[in-house]
Design a protein around this nucleic acid. Structure first.
Lengths: 341, 341
DNA sequence: TTGTAAGCGTTATCAC
DNA sequence: GTGATAACGCTTACAA
């Protein structure tokens, strides 16, 4: 754990000034080919790497991009990270990744930490909607304090006018439900998501709308609240399946709802779609291996991430251009689990 | 995008010197209660956050901990990240996460980037073994250059004497195989992992050893190389299952091997364990939902990560203590897929 | 084509 | 208790 090699050391050893070394490192300004060679040699000899801290301090801008997600163990977000990282790293930036674990307080804590790091830009999937007056004010200020471009991803925050990449949750949920309707189901249940979240409410609204348009009734007892959580969904679906009477078709609000739902279904040895049909918004991981008909709403999650990263990076060169709202498309992939038999 | 608030601004507004503000921030040195209050007020008013860059530069040590993994979309590593992040963040450090995508060149690129960040410590799951002379020399130097504590996680690098958290892959693979033997299988096949990796070879060796001890033969054609990759495993298992004759029991070398294997098996509508039995080293995600008997070697992956993080953080206070080698235990959880029927 | 010097925002060492 | 002042390692005018 010795002192790190500095630009000064390199300059001395190469018999030049620090300025020259700096010019060699950054490839700007004039420097004689021969001198440059010599400097390079010395840098390699000592495995010199310029200090990012010193550089950001001097340049007054860092190369770090913040990535703040609500979950990191959800494969949905893992895939998103892939997309983001590929774009960000290709552009020479460094990623600082944190998970809020769906906790607003952690969102704030992490944003402070990112502020200290003076991140160059932020890609943000909020832990919640921040829609009441107090929360809204807080998140607004927290983001403004960052003083850098922000891209909101997947979960929009109303009234916050940042670049944004989302899916149309209403339309998506409607398509899912319509798929069940088209298959001939008349009584359709739902595993709703977290209704505190806009995306949860939108998906539910899309579900309702589809039923309404088809003039199908929705019984209150056919609505389950799974909170976008596998375990909770499992427990509630399990309970429902133990009733004498329940819907034979379901709309599932996300991948974790699907996982919990399937667990309960398989536990009772029900067959899909013979005993119970469904369509899911997003798909569980490894769904391809079971040779079972799992119908789902497909969206290119990796692309979702890439788009967000591109939006952010473009924003660096054009800080004051018009705000961009990207909506990535989604479509139902019918695999058979929607069928009525 | 205005200039950030600095310690100087706070000092001025509070009518004190920067030193005093610094003392208030860090809670060291004497400062009158009343003064401290006043400074706090001003800091809050401006949402002041000290610049991490300036601080590291001045202190000559950063609060960033590097986390370098070979894959980030593999749930195995997602779970590991959870464990690491929980410990690291609780201790007030910041995580810099990167994935090498199993590419040694990327390992080096990322290590350089982390060197520039002057990371305080590194948790490292190498992309490969670096066991030939040239590679070994390179990784050795790259890690030394970092000039910070390093913990090698999950995939040991021979001859590199760093703190280390691993599983006993040989023993683990032996237990898996023994489980099949105990169930009465006489002909057991294997989906080997990446044999370029020590962990791949160890698991294979454990498999062989178990057979040998039981005096069971191993046919060459019963060995499949799945490269720890789902798609590759799928293709090769698929091919094997199309042969007129193949083993009715398998040892699978990791979670992705299991996924690929199951995909091929289910595609042919084979039943587990009636048509084909298996035991897997690690388990696929969502394995609990299918109500199917998936026997696997359990290790506490989250704990693996936590231990590594703890080792690293303890190392900060005791840079020269003896090198620690932690081996986390594992055990087979018999679910039924090992049975011979 | 190169070097000198100032400055970036902190912390640490002294004085007072 | 408090405040100048000098680092820390880099970039960037400005000179030469």
């Amino acid at each position: 754990m010795i002192r790190n090699v500095t630009i000064q050391d390199i300059a001395r050893e190469a018999g030049v000034g620090k300025t020259t070394v700096s010019r060699v490192i950054n490839g700007n300004g004039y420097v004689k080919e021969e001198t440059a060679q010599r400097v390079h040699k010395v840098m390699e000899k000592y495995h010199y790497q310029p200090s990012a801290a010193a550089r950001s301090l001097s340049r007054q801008e860092s190369d770090m991009i913040g990535l703040l997600l609500p979950e990191i163990d959800n494969p949905f977000f893992s895939e998103m990270i892939q997309g983001i990282a590929s774009v960000v790293e290709r552009s020479g930036f460094t990623v600082m990744l944190s998970s809020s674990a769906n906790t607003p307080e952690r969102d704030f804590r992490i944003l402070e930490s990112m502020h200290r790091q003076r991140i160059r830009g932020l890609i943000y999937v909020p832990a919640c909607d921040y829609d009441d007056e107090e929360n809204y004010g807080q998140i607004k200020v927290a983001l403004e304090q960052l003083g850098c471009p922000v891209v909101i991803l997947d979960r929009p925050i109303a009234r916050l006018d940042y670049d944004c990449v989302t899916t149309d949750n209403f339309i998506g949920a409607m398509s899912c439900t319509q798929t069940l309707i088209d298959a001939g189901h008349k009584r359709i249940g739902v595993v709703a998501g977290n209704m505190e979240l806009f995306i949860g409410r939108e998906r539910f609204r899309g579900f309702q709308k589809a039923l309404e348009r088809a003039k199908l009734p929705l019984k209150k007892e056919d609505i389950l609240y799974g909170e976008f959580d596998k375990q909770i969904t499992y427990e509630r679906v399990k309970e429902m399946l133990s009733r004498p009477d329940y819907p034979k078709a379901f709309f599932l609000s996300n991948n974790l709802s699907e996982a919990g739902f399937l667990k309960a279904v398989f536990e009772r040895n029900l067959r899909i779609p013979e005993d119970v049909a469904f369509v899911s918004f997003d798909k569980i991981s490894n769904q391809d291996i079971y040779n079972m008909p799992f119908t789902y709403l497909e969206r290119n999650v990796r692309d979702l991430g890439e788009q967000a990263a591109q939006l952010l990076i473009r924003r660096f060169d054009d800080p004051d251009g018009p705000v961009q709202k990207v909506v990535v498309i989604s479509k139902v992939i019918p695999m058979g689990s929607e069928r009525k038999v």
